[in-house]
């Protein structure tokens, strides 16, 4: 159907998007790559100098890097388990014909729409504060000692906050996927005497497989670069206990003004994210055919 004429119009219509995105991606990324090989500190202007792989060596051998990498993986892994597991349970529950289903659904998805700085501060102050927080009051009421969440269990606290934000996302996506499940197939299996567990394992779970994979991959992309939640709660501390890769690069860049080091870290973060991105893009690409 596409003639030469419409094809060139189509190209013209796509051009702005393609050119802008290309510029947005290629220019900064190649600058980052270039900076990563320079000795470049904003506090010492005019001293830029070729540094080879020094920045990478410096960044990777810094003990903080290993801590940050481990924290990043622990954060991503734990939040995935909590949000996908909890989200799946919530979705299964919400898919039942319960009273007030629509309202419960609104309650459950609400946290996803709360901006990260608000949720982090609300949790930090009103829940996790060691003296005035609700958790402290609760512990007090039970006769237990109050815990200073953010200084004694900083990473766990951040995992809780971030899971609270992402569980609704998983629940919403999985619930949508559940609703497209073939009812007749379910009823047939039930007539044949398949137990609820078997029906879940053999019909529901396979049906949800793709949605679960999509949720895991998309969450991973976002969770790899959690930032605001750390900035306003623990600032990465105490020490480096709750510093993830994004936050470490941020401290290197905007607090120590070490452009070279931060760029090397940025490239490492890009590589890490790409490993996940490849799987996600394949999966979505496969879906595009049908």
């Amino acid at each position: 159907m596409a003639t030469m004429h419409t094809r060139s119009i189509a190209r013209l219509m796509m051009a702005p998007s393609v050119i802008l995105l290309l510029g947005w991606m290629l220019i900064p990324l190649s600058m980052t790559l270039y900076f990563s090989f320079l000795r470049y500190n904003l506090l010492m202007p005019g001293m830029e100098d070729w540094a080879g792989v020094f920045n990478y060596e410096y960044f990777v051998t810094d003990p903080a890097f290993v801590t940050a990498l481990v924290n990043t993986l622990v954060l991503v892994g734990s939040v995935l388990v909590i949000s996908v597991g909890g989200g799946l349970l919530m979705a299964l529950l919400l898919n039942q014909p319960i009273f007030g289903q629509g309202i419960v659904r609104l309650l459950v998805i609400a946290p996803f729409f709360v901006m990260p700085t608000v949720s982090a501060l609300v949790w930090k102050n009103m829940f996790m504060h060691p003296v005035y927080g609700l958790f402290a009051s609760l512990a007090h009421g039970l006769g237990l000692p109050a815990i200073d969440w953010l200084s004694s269990a900083p990473l766990l606290s951040i995992i809780l906050i971030v899971s609270w934000q992402w569980l609704p996302f998983a629940a919403l996506i999985l619930l949508t996927a559940l609703q497209s499940l073939d009812e007749e197939q379910m009823e047939a299996a039930e007539m044949d005497g398949a137990s609820a567990v078997r029906r879940f394992a053999h019909i529901t779970l396979p049906h949800l497989a793709r949605a679960i994979t999509v949720v895991i991959l998309i969450e991973t992309i976002f969770l790899l670069s959690v930032f605001a939640e750390i900035l306003v709660t623990t600032s990465g501390g105490p020490g480096y206990d709750s510093t993830n890769l994004s936050y470490l690069i941020y401290t290197q860049a905007l607090l120590q003004f070490d452009v070279g080091g931060a760029s090397a870290g940025g490239i490492i973060a890009v590589i890490l994210a790409n490993i996940v991105a490849i799987f996600l893009i394949r999966l979505i690409g496969k879906n595009l055919e049908t």
């Binding site: 670069s225 931060a262 760029s263």
Partner: peptide
């Protein structure tokens, strides 16, 4: 093209933060 556009969304912000900041 669609796939490539998607891939730009997966670029972590810290990877392009420094140049954007300087520009």
């Amino acid at each position: 093209i669609l796939m490539w556009m998607l891939s730009t969304k997966m670029l972590p912000a810290v990877g392009v933060m420094m140049p954007i900041y300087l520009i």
